[in-house]
Every structure is written in C-alpha cells, then in structure tokens.
Amino acid sequence: MPRPRVRGAGKGELRLYVTGSTLLSLRAIENLEWSLQQELGELYDYEVIDVLEHPELAAEDGIFATPALVRRQPLPVRKLIGDLSDRELVLRSLRFGGSPREGQTR
C-alpha cells in the first residue's frame, strides 16, 4: 500500500489518507492518480498514508472520515473527503488560485 514519496521544490503538498485496501481506498488512489496525470502532478508532491499503519499522522491532520485528501500546502489547508470520484471537484479545488465552491456545501 505505501506509495513512493515524490519530492520537488516549490510544490504543494498532498496527503491521501486511506484505510487498508478497501474498495474506497483503492478508488481514491486511482482517482487521485488520474487527477495528477491530468494537471495536478506538476503542482503537487503527494503521499498515500494508511491510517491503520500510521494513526499518529492521521491524528496530526485531524482525520476521521476516510478516504481523505489533505492539501497541507499551500494554505489554506483544504480537505477533500471521499473516494475522489467527483473528479471535477478535485481539480477545481486543487488548482492553484482556484475556488472549489460552486454550489458545494460542507
């Protein structure tokens, strides 16, 4: 499950929290990778963290609903909850300078 860490300078930072190899976890990873291939890959470094193995990291980011994609950088911290199947929302939310809110409620 642990994914390779990709590091680069001046990039944003994403963390995807999943719980083991559940269907939701796998779908979330697939959807994130799609978004990265589309356009986000150049903007962000990312890592996938299994909460079952690293609950302390999940505590740090206040995770309770999963899967959860956390944009740690740039600020503001933004959390996307769910399997990321709303790919449009993911792209809209994570483009630099983009606004996620178009008829969305928390």
Binding site: R27, L52, A65, A68, R78, K79, R106
Partner: peptide, 21 residues
Amino acid sequence: LVAGEEMLEAGQFDFGGLLAR
C-alpha cells in the same frame, strides 16, 4: 474542526479513519 480549514465531500466515504485512530 480546525478554524479556517475547509472541508469538501468529493465522493463516498466512511469513518474508517476515526475507527483506526
């Protein structure tokens, strides 16, 4: 919730993270 943090739903979720912690 941390003040100033934004949270959006982008698909199906469960409380597995909470349970694990």
